[in-house]
Design a protein around this nucleic acid. Structure first.
Lengths: 215, 215
DNA sequence: TAGATTGTTAATCGATTAACAATC
DNA sequence: TAGATTGTTAATCGATTAACAATC
């Protein structure tokens, strides 16, 4: 356990997928799985599965494979799922509301402490179990509750304005749905960008490419 | 133009980001930009910018750099933005509604023809300018309007049920927000997965890693 | 023990970066 | 022409795959 210094991001990004499928296997009551079968299930090579897992330790057993339940737990530790890092959601528009409603934060390593918006019509309304709070009170809130992560569901201009304050208030990591290029402006901050528009454009390319090949 | 056979997906995935920044530059009235300056702006190397663009053709001019407006147009062509591939959205829950409201499909190469749901309470309601239609009528709709792409904003079980029909009805590409592992089950179909939960878990890892390093 | 499958090293493959001649 | 910057080749780097001895 815990020899995870300098594991490449490519490996890390595969772990959540491994975890999803392992959880499914565990729920189905499967106790052991070989790297070969697991690889086949999710569509990668067995070598890659073994290589990836061995970045963190020897979780397998020669001749048998991997203990599914145990491996789930190990990956939970690696990804920090049990840390429940405190987070705030900034922007309660369509996307923010969808995320607040939809996403199971506690299963993904976070605890959603509060939802904030500037729109007076939204403030006081509830999403799930939470009341939308006034963005004006966000600084105060951070000083009191010390969230480490902020989810940015606001437009680029809004993000540009609020991010310097958020960093000042102690936010270390951002789940960024805005077009603001955080990572370039703030080098020491952890940023996970989600650009749905970029994803859609990639799909546009792939469909076009396929259509052209038919010619 | 058009020597794009066999360009790697890594390159393609960078193009939407290039495009976003180029559009910004164009709106600011900047006519030419060098690979060096552009690379600095978005946080990559100048070599990579030139190498990437040269997969598709020599768009630059020695001594001056790249014509911003022209490069925008070229990337639009490469990504197929002007094709307006017809698409349907399956599932009008929180996420589906957010996407229908939020996403500018026409700017990203698609035309959203219809939104479908099974929930009787939702059918007939409107999202943006569109009325939510009965999923029962989706087959008929596809035979009439021939959408090429489907956006899956439904749970895994729903996706597993509807995808075989969608493929039968002529859908070639999927924008998949469900946990259903389409790409493994259907090899010849184009799939762009968006797993927001995986993205959040990656962020959890990165924040945890950073916190550990402080020790 | 024999069979299976891991952990790990070595080989391959692909992607990124550096360098520079070509050229605007 | 001189300066700048591309297009492109070569060098480097990293990630994936293959192979196999170790071992359950």
């Amino acid at each position: 356990m815990a020899k995870n210094t300098g594991v490449s991001l490519a490996v890390i990004r595969r772990l959540p997928r491994y975890y999803r499928f392992l959880e499914d296997l565990r729920k189905e009551g499967i106790e052991y799985i070989s790297s070969r079968k697991f690889a086949e299930l999710i569509g990668v090579t067995a070598s890659q599965v073994r290589q990836d897992l061995n970045c963190f330790g020897g979780f397998g057993q020669q001749g048998r494979g991997y203990d599914v339940a145990n491996l789930c737990k190990e990956i939970e530790t690696i990804l920090g799922i049990r840390r429940q890092t405190p987070a705030v959601l900034v922007g309660a528009g369509n996307l923010g509301a969808a995320i607040a409603n939809h996403m199971d934060f506690s299963q993904r390593g976070f605890s959603l402490l509060g939802i904030f918006d500037t729109d007076a019509r939204k403030i006081g309304q509830t999403i799930g179990k939470q009341t939308i709070l006034d963005m004006q009170t966000l600084g105060e809130f951070c000083q009191k509750h010390h969230p480490q992560m902020a989810i940015l569901c606001i437009p680029q201009e809004g993000a540009e304005k609020i991010v310097p304050s958020l960093i000042e208030w102690g936010i270390e990591g951002f789940w960024n749905f805005s077009h603001f290029n955080l990572a370039v402006s703030y080098e020491n901050v952890i940023v996970e960008n989600v650009h749905l528009g970029d994803s859609l454009l990639t799909l546009s390319y792939l469909i076009q490419e396929r259509d052209q090949q038919k010619t």
